[in-house]
Measured scan of single mutants.
Amino acid sequence: MAAGGDHGSPDSYRSPLASRYASPEMCFVFSDRYKFRTWRQLWLWLAEAEQTLGLPITDEQIQEMKSNLENIDFKMAAEEEKRLRHDVMAHVHTFGHCCPKAAGIIHLGATSCYVGDNTDLIILRNALDLLLPKLARVISRLADFAKERASLPTLGFTHFQPAQLTTVGKRCCLWIQDLCMDLQNLKRVRDDLRFRGVKGTTGTQASFLQLFEGDDHKVEQLDKMVTEKAGFKRAFIITGQTYTRKVDIEVLSVLASLGASVHKICTDIRLLANLKEMEEPFEKQQIGSSAMPYKRNPMRSERCCSLARHLMTLVMDPLQTASVQWFERTLDDSANRRICLAEAFLTADTILNTLQNISEGLVVYPKVIERRIRQELPFMATENIIMAMVKAGGSRQDCHEKIRVLSQQAASVVKQEGGDNDLIERIQVDAYFSPIHSQLDHLLDPSSFTGRASQQVQRFLEEEVYPLLKPYESVMKVKAELCL
C-alpha cells in the first residue's frame, strides 16, 4: 500500500493539533497551500530580480507567473513527485505547466533550498508574528487579574506546605514575570531571523556568478533584492546548502521555554482548584465526569500541561538535527523538520489560546482563602504575639514557653481530632496574655502579614508589564474561544 493518505478522510490519521486544537490561522501558515504558494512567490521574486539585473526574462513571463501564483494543481504535483521522487522539481514542473512561456526560467540558477529553506524562514517569521500578540493578550488578562487582587491576602506555599502570606495578585505576578520573559525572547528570536537568500547549491553562489558572467556586484544585488522582497532586513552571508540548523534550535528553545512557563502556571491553577481557592472557567453544560456528576475538573489547565510537556520535548529534535548536518548538509534534517517545526508552533498556539481562555474567566473564592488563612495564621502570628507581650512588660522566655504549650495543644486538636485551630481562643482565655487581649485582632490582621506584596504588584505592572504590552494595544480586544 502506498504511503500517505487522504487526510480529510475519517479513515486516515490526522494530527489532533490540526484537527482538534490549533487555530485556523496557525494551521494555514503550515498548510501545503501556504507552503507551495510561497515557493511560487519566491520563484517570481527571483525572476523579477534577475530581470532587473539584466537576464533575458520578459515582462510577459513575469506576468504569467504572477497570474498563476494561486493556480496550484495539487493532484498534478503529487503525481509528479511520485514520478520524480523530488518535491521541488515536482512543483517546478507543475508551475511550468500553467506558465508555459515562463517554464524555462522558473528556478533559474537556484537549488531546492532556495524555495525550501527560504519558505521555512518566512513561515517561522509569520508563525512567530501570530504567537506574539496571543502571548501579549494572556499577559494582559493576567495583569488585569493581578491588579484587581493585588491586596487580597492568601496563604503562600513553599514545598506545598503553608508559608508566609502573600497576595493573590502577587502570586499571579510570578506567572506574568515568566511570560514577559517569554514574550521578550519570542520577539528577540523573531527579529534575529535572517533570510537564507540566493546562495546556490553549497552556499557559494557559483551558479549565479556564472549567470551574471562573473559580476560579483550583481550577485550581491540579486541576494539583497530577493531578501528585501521577502520582507527581511538581512540575509546570511555564510550558508551551506541550507541555512544553519542552529536557527531551528533557537526558535524551538524559546517555544519550549514558553511551554515550561505555561505548565507551571496551569499546575498552580490545578492545585488551587483542589484547594477550592480558584477555578478555571466551567461552562453551564460542561460535564466533569461521566460517573461523578459533582466533579469540576480543571480540564483546560490539564490540557495545557499535557501539550506543554510535548512542546518542551520537541527542542531535542533540532538539537540532534543540527549535530548531524555533515559538511554542507545531509538530508537527516528533512523529514524531522517537516514534523517538529509545525508541531512546535501548533502546540504553542494551542496552549496560548487555551491559557487566554482560562485567564479571561478565572474565578476566585475569597471566603475559602480566608478560612485557610484562619487555619494557619495563628501559628504564624506567634512571633508577633511574643513581641507584643514583651512590649507590655512580659518575659520573652516565659511567653515563648506559654505559646509553645498552647500551640501544641491547638495542633493536637487540628491533627488528632480534625478540629479547627483554636490557638487564639486559648490565648484569649489565658490570664497571662490579658495585657494584649485587646491587640489580638490587630495582630491577626492578614494584611499585616503580606509585606509589600501589593506595592510590588503595582510597581511591576507599571514599570515592566504595561510598557512591554504597549506595541500590542491594537490587538488586545480579541477574545479566545474554545470549541473543545
Score class of each variant (00 low, 15 high):
K479R: 14
L132N: 14
V315F: 13
G104A: 14
L258H: 13
L346F: 14
R188Y: 02
T202D: 07
E220T: 11
K276M: 06
H86P: 00
Q286K: 03
R33E: 13
I122E: 00
L377D: 03
H400W: 01
M65E: 00
I427T: 06
E473W: 13
V414T: 05
D178R: 02
Q397D: 07
K170A: 04
A256R: 03
E250R: 11
A102L: 07
S323N: 05
C399R: 02
R309L: 04
V226A: 04
P366A: 06
F208Q: 05
V457D: 03
G393L: 06
R338Q: 03
I139G: 08
A206W: 01
Q409I: 06
V247P: 02
I424F: 10
S19W: 10
I436C: 06
R33T: 10
T94I: 11
C305W: 03
K101M: 13
S448L: 15
G8K: 15
L84R: 12
S434Y: 10
E79L: 14
M89Q: 03
L128T: 13
A291I: 03
V429L: 15
P281I: 08
S31N: 00
P281T: 11
K82T: 13
S306E: 00
L53V: 15
Q177A: 12
S112M: 00
V414W: 05
L271C: 07
S31H: 06
F282P: 00
T167K: 02
Q63S: 11
E277S: 04
C304V: 13
G104R: 13
M76H: 13
K187E: 09
L440R: 04
Q408H: 13
A90W: 02
L174D: 11
D6R: 08
K187F: 09
L211G: 03
Q397E: 07
D32Y: 10
V413N: 13
E464W: 07
I123K: 06
R459G: 13
I139K: 03
K246D: 00
E462R: 10
L469C: 14
N274L: 06
V364E: 02
C27E: 12
L440Y: 03
I105G: 08
I105Q: 07
C173R: 01
C99T: 13
E25A: 14
C173M: 03
Y294A: 02
V115Q: 05
T166I: 08
R452D: 01
E481I: 09
L314T: 08
E462S: 13
R194G: 10
A291R: 02
D420M: 06
T154S: 12
S23V: 07
I351E: 04
A47S: 09
C172S: 11
W43H: 15
K199L: 02
I238P: 05
H91R: 05
R371S: 04
L271V: 08
K82Q: 13
R234L: 11
D317V: 06
P133C: 12
Q320R: 03
R149C: 09
A381I: 09
V457G: 03
R303H: 01
D333F: 00
V254P: 09
D430P: 05
R40K: 06
N185L: 07
L252F: 09
I238E: 04
P471F: 15
L193D: 02
Q51M: 11
T94G: 11
F160L: 06
L179M: 13
R296D: 03
P467G: 09
T242S: 08
R188H: 13
F95T: 08
S334F: 01
R234Q: 11
E481W: 08
A256V: 08
A103I: 11
L135D: 04
T58K: 08
M292V: 01
D178Q: 08
T201V: 09
R371Q: 04
E228R: 12
R452S: 14
V198K: 02
K264E: 01
R83P: 09
A381E: 09
F145A: 06
K233I: 12
